[in-house]
Nucleic acid binder design. Structure first.
Lengths: 126, 126
DNA sequence: TCCCCCTTTTACAAACCTTTTACAAATCGA
DNA sequence: TCGATTTGTAAAAGGTTTGTAAAAGGGGGA
């Protein structure tokens, strides 16, 4: 089962929530506090959309209706630090928010298609 | 049982209302907000006619009597994105509205006929 | 205090979504 | 069948959201 893992893990990305530590292909990635919290929150909700409101509330403590670009800027920095998977993990849901998408191998058959099968990733919040 | 599914599912189409995510034959389909809301509303009423008025009211917040073509345009886009089942799912009820029709295999006997049998699809709003 | 690093803002570009417009095609009643 | 109405479709217009680079702001440690 997944309980007890207390982290996110797939082929390339590893996040330890306990250690607040992120690795891409085995190499340690240095994130600032906000960057980490943003990524962690998204990864903890892997596969699900997290609205901007929710991110601003939970990471920044902002109340609803606050208008700021700081979220976008942080998203950009996190994406950059996840290189070479810059555009792989954090998906933009236009007008809604962002979604962390677990790594999926592209199928060799149809280009633009995703392979189906067992997840290949796991999250657990302990 | 169906309860708890919180989505629509048949042989080819899968809609997760919780994740706002739509898949056609396993491939993720990207819908805009309005497109998704439109499809979701129709799918939640699978097999039933949803009048234009109702769609314009619930998806757009328009009040009765508003005259616009935006609904038609959105219907078209959603249909297109459900390829290769473009003309399969959303049926036009002339002068009334639209109806989402769950996928049914065409019978090999009479062309233009629908096979009968168990539903083969399910909706649940949790 | 100064410096460094992190965060936030600013400003503009780019991408995106929605709505309108205009005309063609389809449908229905007379 | 004709005419009026409704829907399909393509393309453009309009408006909003997000991406990005750079500068400004702020806090903690030396």
């Amino acid at each position: 089962m997944l309980l007890g893992l207390n982290g996110y893990e797939d082929t390339h990305l590893n996040i330890s929530f306990a250690r607040r530590q992120v690795e891409v292909d085995g190499a340690l990635v240095t994130l600032t506090r906000k960057e980490y919290e943003l990524l962690a929150l998204l990864a903890q909700n892997a596969g699900e959309i997290v609205p901007r409101d929710a991110l601003l509330r939970q990471v920044w403590g902002y109340s609803e209706g606050v208008r700021t670009r700081t979220l976008d800027v942080h998203i950009r920095r996190v994406r950059k630090k996840l290189a070479p998977f810059t555009d792989q993990y954090i998906e933009t849901i236009f007008g809604v928010g962002y979604r962390f998408q677990p790594y999926r191998q592209r199928s060799a058959v149809g280009s633009g298609e995703w392979a189906v099968g067992s997840p290949g990733w796991a999250v657990a919040t302990g």
